[in-house]
Simulated scan of single mutants.
Amino acid sequence: MKKDKQKVIGEEVSDERLKDLLTLKSHDDVNNDYHILTKAYRALREDDFARFLQIFITAGHDINATSKEGETFLATISSHQQAEHYINTLKQAGAQ
């Protein structure tokens, strides 16, 4: 985390803030849906990420979008030690 950023713990994230994540744009030819999932995963707590996924899917975004290497977001985080809840949430939402 950058020194100039404060970590906010316990702040409630509104649906509007979650929807704002859908406006993010990728760079370097990264699939935009994959980019959005990555940013949401890095920024959101477990429960907020679960809420975000429903908004993401309802808005018509692809939960199985792939990286430049052809890997789904679920596959990317499957080796992360503290991602179990995120992985389960993705699977329940239909990620492969």
Rank of each mutant, 00 (worst) to 15 (best):
A43Y: 08
H85R: 11
K68A: 09
K25F: 00
G94W: 08
H35T: 09
R51S: 06
Y41A: 06
Q54F: 07
D29L: 10
I9A: 09
T72W: 02
E12G: 01
T58A: 15
T76Y: 14
Q96M: 11
Q82E: 13
K2M: 09
F52W: 05
T89N: 04
L18R: 00
D33Q: 00
N31Q: 03
G10V: 06
L21E: 00
Q82N: 15
F49Q: 02
E84Q: 15
T66F: 01
L74V: 09
K91S: 00
E84F: 07
D20A: 15
A83R: 05
R45S: 13
S14T: 15
I36A: 01
Q81S: 14
I36M: 06
L37S: 02
V8H: 10
I55K: 05
K25M: 11
L21S: 00
G10L: 06
N88H: 11
L24D: 05
L21D: 01
E16W: 03
Y41H: 11
I9S: 12
M1A: 12
D47L: 12
E16C: 01
I36L: 00
I9V: 15
S79A: 10
D20P: 00
F49S: 02
T89D: 08
K5N: 10
T23R: 09
L44P: 06
T38L: 07
K25V: 09
K39F: 03
A65V: 00
L37V: 06
F52M: 07
I57D: 04
L21A: 02
D62Y: 09
Y86W: 01
A50R: 11
D47K: 14
G10P: 10
D28T: 08
S14C: 05
Q96G: 13
D48T: 02
